[in-house]
Amino acid sequence: MSNNSDSKKKNKKQSETTLEMVPVFIMGKKYDVPATLTIQKAFEYAGYQLVRGCGCRGGICGACGTVYRFPDSYRIEVGLACQTVVKPNMYISQIPFFPANKAVYDIEELEPTGSTVTALYPEIFKCVGCGTCTRSCPMDIDVMEYISRAIRGDIAGAAELSFDCVMCGLCTARCPSELVQYNIGILTRRLYGRHIAKRAKHLEDAVENVKQKKFDKGIKKLKKMDIDKLKAVYSARETEPQFGPEEWEPENKDYLITE
């Protein structure tokens, strides 16, 4: 037992001499962590088992919005804890939750206009154009610009510009006018997807074709096939070229709708 822990200590020493360590301050408390770690892994290295403030660990779910600051700097910096590598002397605090209002609506009933957005989120007019939201976005989205597009009624523009939003809430946490930018963003995206983008006619047709059981016969045949025959059919199927024209059609049209 003691041997084990001795050798562990030695290992620790060895690994620490090879690892470059940096001091970070987690909620004001100092820990030395390897310089290559992300903020998230630094918390864990320090001994935390995360419950809040950790989700996909891949930069897309928005669970780990984090603010930090360096000594002698007035600037508050932001990042996703799972994506941001530690730097010496960071003072770190996660913001795993921030209260935010969310308008309730029936997307079917809404018109894709600026007045829809301003009626659901009237506080949007309080925007003073300070740009803190844009500076607070870990996804480098021009948040203030999509908010002003939404006010102007440019729903498509707001939807497009806010598309990469991970809804981490850092913009909202820092907004002096108390806007909930990310909820406004998703409203514009849903308005765009539902009411502005043209509907896919071929999709509607495909649903109808299935409903009319137009493919049932073919699939029944496949279901009944013995495995060797199925393998043969599989191997013989035509493959659409990767970069061919959208209008490509296969030779065998038996199980397709050609009219």
């Binding site: 896919a200 493919f215 073919g218 059919v233 490509w248 199980y255 709708i257």
Partner: peptide, 14 residues
């Protein structure tokens, strides 16, 4: 399989 001129649930199944 939403483009039934070249694709169908048959090929998706396969």
């Amino acid at each position: 399989a939403t483009k039934n001129r070249k694709d169908s649930p048959y090929y998706h199944y396969l």
